[in-house]
Simulated assay, not measured.
Amino acid sequence: MDMEEHIEELLRGVYDPELGINIVDLGLVYDIQYHNERIFIKMTLTTPGCPMHDTIVGGVKYVLKEKLETEDVEIDLVWEPKWSPEMISREGKDVLGIR
């Protein structure tokens, strides 16, 4: 497993508290990069005015800093492409009961 895959697995531990599904299966994580012990995450939220913004972004930073013992985590929160339910993984759809 390379570092980007390891980071993705760690991010499966960060949940959208309103939906009860992790941010990877929800389709919020667009890109993961790891270079020279620096972590870069490109992600979105379900809506620009998401009330869980601080909770979710804070959870990403906390998990990565805690588990990887680094302070060099950058999160780029983007709104394009716009998130849609089609981005939810099969596992996520199963959790939400979506067919």
Rank of each mutant, 00 (worst) to 15 (best):
M1H: 13
M3K: 15
H6S: 05
I7Q: 04
I7N: 03
I7S: 06
E8D: 00
E8Q: 05
E8A: 08
E9K: 11
R12A: 02
G13S: 09
G13H: 07
G13D: 11
V14K: 05
V14L: 04
Y15N: 04
Y15W: 02
P17F: 01
P17A: 02
E18L: 04
L19F: 01
L19Y: 11
L19D: 00
G20P: 02
G20L: 00
N22H: 04
N22I: 04
N22P: 07
N22C: 02
I23V: 13
I23S: 00
I23F: 01
V24P: 01
V24G: 07
V24T: 01
V24E: 04
L26R: 09
G27K: 09
G27H: 09
L28Q: 05
L28N: 04
Y30I: 11
D31R: 13
D31P: 07
I32F: 03
Y34G: 02
Y34H: 13
H35N: 14
N36T: 13
N36A: 12
E37L: 06
E37G: 01
R38A: 15
I39D: 06
M43L: 11
M43N: 06
L45H: 11
T46W: 09
T46P: 09
T46A: 08
T47V: 12
P48Y: 08
G49H: 11
G49Y: 15
C50K: 10
C50E: 13
C50V: 10
P51G: 10
H53A: 03
H53V: 09
H53F: 12
D54L: 10
T55G: 00
T55R: 13
V57C: 12
V57G: 00
G58C: 11
G59K: 05
V60W: 01
K61Y: 09
K61R: 15
Y62Q: 15
Y62C: 01
Y62I: 01
Y62T: 11
V63K: 15
L64Q: 13
E66F: 09
E66H: 12
E66M: 07
L68R: 12
T70M: 08
T70C: 10
T70L: 07
T70A: 04
E71H: 11
E71S: 13
D72E: 15
V73A: 03
V73S: 09
E74C: 06
E74F: 07
D76C: 05
D76M: 08
D76H: 10
V78S: 03
V78K: 05
V78F: 03
W79A: 06
E80W: 10
P81R: 06
P81V: 08
P81F: 08
K82R: 14
K82Q: 14
K82M: 14
P85W: 03
E86D: 14
E86I: 05
M87N: 05
R90F: 09
R90S: 12
R90H: 12
E91S: 07
E91D: 13
E91K: 12
G92V: 03
K93F: 02
K93L: 02
K93P: 11
D94A: 13
D94F: 08
D94V: 14
V95P: 00
V95F: 07
R99N: 13
R99L: 13
